[in-house]
Amino acid sequence: MMGSTLLRILVSLVLSLAIAARAYKHKSLNRSGAMMGFVVMAIHIAAGYRFGVLILVFFFTSSKLTKFGQEKKRTIDEDFKEGGQRNWIQVLANSAIATVLVVILVTITGGEDRCLDTKNSALITGLTGGVIGHYACCNGDTWSSEIGMLSKGQPRLITTFKPVKKGTNGAVTIEGLLAAAAAGFVIGLAYTLVGLLTTGCAGDVAWKQLLVVPIATAMGLCGSLIDSLLGATVQFSGYCSLRKKVVSKRAPSVTKISGMNILDNNGVNAASILLTTLLTSVACLYIF
């Protein structure tokens, strides 16, 4: 047991360092983002391979989608940066809650992967469900945003269904919503496949682990909808006549589209992640 734990810690350090360095080289993360990314990834992988695969699937798929169609996104996104270049605040906004949960879990389990089973441990089931929901939300929101910006469909504000310009906070498209569900599906599938190799679930408990896939799919969509609802109501969107873009800050040249200036994009992301994490945790307690 001690040997496998030490091996996992070593793997976590080497793999996280390699991924963070590569991400910095390819401009997926800036310097501060790469440093924070290394810490967060190392914690997840050291806590359990299932948790490690969740953050890695989220990171790699979101990074690829961020770079897809960059020329078009450059004309839409006010904060566009070549390659994405997420900083430490963005990394933390998309990983802080899950990092806290996996640290609690590894403290309880000693790094042993456990099945989702409330009869054995409701606490472990609830906390693990929260981690799954966290990354289903993160992946769903990212896929939805990145694919939605490239959609040929007309974005509509989620609160009024009024047609709005691309880049408006709280706007949704059919393609974006389907992408969110697909993103959640990928998270659930990755967790389940790795779990088959790392857990000793048996009987009905083993079969029930497959329910993670539809749960994560639903939470990918749900998390994206929550993010859009918050974006449309507590995050300001306006059209700048000078930059010819939708922006998130008031100015003399900006005409309001929607939302109050209460939270910025990182705040909206963190709030939607927290709500989806709690929702998934409760769902897992009832289902498993």
Rank of each mutant, 00 (worst) to 15 (best):
M2K: 12
L178R: 03
L196K: 11
S16V: 02
R250D: 13
L157G: 00
T61V: 15
L56Y: 03
G220V: 02
P214H: 11
I76A: 14
L230I: 14
V268L: 03
D204F: 10
A232S: 09
G33R: 10
F68G: 12
C137S: 07
L242H: 12
K166W: 08
L285G: 06
C201Y: 01
P163T: 04
A93N: 03
A206K: 12
L56D: 01
G188R: 00
W88T: 13
N30H: 10
A96D: 08
R50P: 04
V40I: 08
A182I: 06
I108W: 09
N94Q: 08
I273Q: 08
V91I: 02
T277A: 07
I124W: 03
A122H: 15
H44E: 05
I187A: 06
L197S: 14
F185C: 14
A232P: 02
G140N: 03
T280V: 06
V11L: 03
S16A: 08
V246Q: 01
Y286W: 13
I43H: 00
D77P: 09
A190W: 03
K162R: 14
G267P: 04
Q85E: 04
L101V: 00
G148F: 08
C138Q: 12
A122P: 10
L221I: 05
G110W: 08
P214L: 09
Y191F: 06
V11D: 00
Y239V: 06
G259T: 05
D227Q: 02
A122D: 09
L54Y: 02
P214F: 09
G52H: 00
I43Q: 00
G69I: 09
L196A: 14
C284I: 10
L196N: 13
L54V: 02
C201E: 08
L285E: 04
L101E: 01
N261L: 05
E175H: 06
S145M: 01
M219H: 05
V247A: 15
G3P: 15
S62V: 08
K67N: 15
L278I: 08
A171G: 06
S151Y: 10
L285K: 03
D77H: 11
A180R: 00
G37M: 07
N120V: 15
I124F: 03
I147M: 01
V39L: 08
Y24F: 12
L210I: 09
I287M: 13
L105A: 14
G153K: 11
S144P: 02
S63R: 05
L242Q: 10
L177G: 02
G220Y: 01
H134S: 09
A216D: 05
I55S: 04
L15H: 08
G184Q: 10
A271E: 01
P252M: 01
D79G: 15
A122Q: 13
G203A: 15
Q154E: 11
S32Q: 15
K245Y: 04
T192D: 13
K165R: 11
I187W: 04
L279A: 07
E71M: 12
G220N: 00
K249C: 07
G203I: 15
E82N: 11
Y286K: 12
G140D: 03
H134Q: 15
L101K: 01
S16G: 04
S248G: 14
G48A: 03
K64G: 11
A47H: 04
A251I: 12
L196E: 14
E175L: 13
N169E: 06
L17F: 08
F51G: 00
D141Y: 07
I76L: 12
I132T: 02
L105W: 09
H134G: 14
T168S: 10
I174F: 10
I104S: 09
Y49K: 07
T255Q: 03
G184T: 13
T107S: 13
